[in-house]
Structure formats: C-alpha cells, structure tokens
Simulated assay, not measured.
Amino acid sequence: MKILIAGAYDNVPHTTVKFMEKAFRSLGHDVEIFDFRRIRKERGGSEMESQMLATVRETEPDTMILMKGEDINLRTIIAIGEHTHVSLRYMDSPLPRWLRKLAAACDSTFITAGGLVAEFEKAGVKNVFHLWEGVDPEVHRHWETDTDDFECDVAFVGVNKAGRDALLSTVIETGADVAVYGRKWPAGFPVRGEGIYLDDFAKLCSRAKIVLGMNDNNSIENYFSDRTFQIPACRGFHITSRVPGMENWFTDGGHLVCFDIGRGRGKKKYADAADKVKYWLDRPDERVRIAAAGQKWVYERYTWKKVCAGMTGKIEALISC
C-alpha cells in the first residue's frame, strides 16, 4: 500500500510520525511524508493546503494519514477525500468542536483514548477505532551499564501539570531519592533536566529502581500515557496511576504496578502512591521479575510494527469495501 503521512516530521528523532514511518516501511509499504506544520510555518496555511492537495494528486497514495490535523480547512480534507482514503490519527483526550468536524470529513479515525470512541460516533464520525501508541524495540530497550548518571530510587519524566507536583512532594517525603526530568517544576524540586529522550530515556528506565508515572486524565476508560508502554519496554519497573480499563491491557503486579488516587488534597490524595513506592523499594528481586515480564508483554503486543499493522489492516479492509 502507498501511504502519505501528513504530520510533524522536522528534526526531532522521537516523533510518532518517524516511528510510524519506520514501522510502515518494515511492513513493506511505500511511505511519503508531508510535513504540513513546517510548510505552514514557512509558507502560510493557504499555500500549505494547496501543496498538500497537489501532493495527493501527484503521488496518488492509497491513503493519507493525517496526524491530528489542527487548523486545516475542511474543504481541503474533502477535496483530498475525492482522490484517496483519508484517515485521521488523534492521540489526545479532548474532543473539541473542530476535531469532531474534521473527523467527520475523514474516511476513518484512529484515537488513543478508547473511552471516547462512542463520543466520536455520536458526533457523526464513521469508522472510529481505538489504537494505542507503540514501542520500538531498537529504541525502547534495556541498557546494561555501570554508569550512575541515571541512578535513583524514583524517576519521574514529564511536565508538571494535573497535580503532579503534589504527587512528587508526597513521594519525596518518604525519603526516597527522586529524580525529575521535565518542565514547569517549582523551585526546590530535584529536577535533573528539562527533558529526556531515546537512549537517555532508556538508560534512565534501566537504572532507576522505580519509574513513576501519572496520567493526564485518570477518568477516561482505556486511555493512558504512551510511557505506560515505553517504560516496561525498557525493562523499567513502572508504578503509575490507575485508569478505568487498564486491567484490559496490563496485569497490576504482573507487568507493572498501579496506585489509586484518593480524594482530597496533598498527602492523603497520593498516599497510595507513597505507600507503594516504599513497599516496592524494599523488594528488588520482585521488581526485576515484574519489569522483565512487563518488557516481554509489551514486545509481544505493543510494538509500533504491530500497531501499524493493525491500522493498515483496517484501512485496507475499508478501501476494499
């Protein structure tokens, strides 16, 4: 199948588009990239959309996969749909008005938030599918290293939002050696860097005793951070916030560990997280066992190659109808 991916490509090596491109090529598909954000920045929205339509006409792809597609005119998508199957890929949890209209103009939509499939369908969107992000075993892997650069009791990767500072404050008060990588953290937090990616991320997951996580939204069913896959893939021991439906994808205590967010504020709200950090820091052998099982589980089910094979299988079935 000939695939045109319209999404952010730029010079960042860890974008979803680059992982998908690699996976599609490994599956034998012919892939072209249209970096609409870069072109829009350089030439403006109108010129970018004209070039997008021209690219579809010239390359004649079997499908164009549109990544998120913010600020793209519906008329452009409708015009492109006259030439090829248009598939929207959306990885976030909100369902804004512009997205409903955009998805309704597409032939298929693949969303990360499984609990929102019914909402999309109610909004008149056809062919809506739940699709996770994936892992790349060549990138998301375990590192055997003697360096202590990333050694700590508890590592946390992410921007400070949605109560994460309260979570980390509660964990820090247990006496654990905590390392934070991310932006917008208050002064005094143990921040070691503003971001960490690729090999360094994998090394951190390999060296930290616990990699702690907290999802942006803990109430949407079957929706959680892509790090929930990436950390176990690096054979990291992952403790993360529980969301409805997580048991459908991972075994709590078998592949990772979940904590429950309580009511109220501060220590009381994140007491379960602090208790589980203390409990699991004292059980290194069990941590190793669970981390190894988590890596095996993710590699068997959630690689980018498997994710993209599922996506193309559904698109091909729709095209052939």
Rank of each mutant, 00 (worst) to 15 (best):
L4Y: 05
L4K: 15
A8K: 14
A8M: 10
D10S: 12
V12L: 14
V12M: 14
V12S: 14
T15G: 06
T16V: 15
E21P: 00
A23H: 05
F24Q: 02
S26N: 06
G28S: 07
H29S: 02
D30Y: 08
V31A: 10
I33Q: 03
D35F: 13
F36L: 12
K41V: 09
E42C: 15
G44T: 07
E47W: 09
M48P: 00
S50G: 09
S50C: 14
Q51G: 11
L53T: 06
T59M: 10
D62F: 05
M64V: 10
I65D: 00
L66K: 01
L66F: 06
K68G: 14
K68C: 11
G69Q: 07
G69F: 12
G69E: 09
E70R: 15
L74W: 03
T76D: 13
I77H: 01
A79R: 15
I80W: 06
H83F: 15
S87R: 05
M91L: 11
D92Y: 01
P94R: 14
L95M: 04
K101I: 14
L102N: 04
C106T: 09
T109A: 11
T109D: 15
I111M: 09
T112G: 08
T112C: 13
T112P: 13
A113E: 12
A113G: 05
A113P: 02
E121I: 04
G124I: 06
H130M: 09
L131W: 12
E133Q: 11
V135P: 00
T145L: 09
D146R: 02
E151Y: 15
F156G: 01
V157A: 06
G158C: 14
K161P: 01
S169F: 08
E173A: 13
T174Y: 07
G175V: 08
A176S: 08
V180Q: 06
V180Y: 05
R183C: 12
W185L: 12
G188Y: 06
V191D: 04
V191C: 07
R192P: 02
Y197A: 08
D199R: 05
F201K: 02
F201Q: 03
A202S: 07
K203W: 12
L204N: 03
L204R: 04
K209V: 01
I210A: 10
I210E: 10
I210P: 01
M214P: 00
N215Q: 08
N222P: 00
Y223I: 04
A233T: 00
C234S: 04
R235G: 14
G245F: 02
G245T: 05
F250N: 04
G253V: 00
G254E: 07
H255G: 04
I261W: 08
K269C: 07
D272R: 04
D272C: 04
D272N: 06
A274W: 02
D275S: 13
K276Q: 11
P284N: 10
E286H: 07
R287H: 02
V288T: 15
R289E: 13
A293C: 07
Q295E: 14
Y299C: 08
E300R: 12
W304Y: 08
W304M: 05
A309T: 03
G313F: 08
I315Y: 09
L318E: 12
I319S: 09
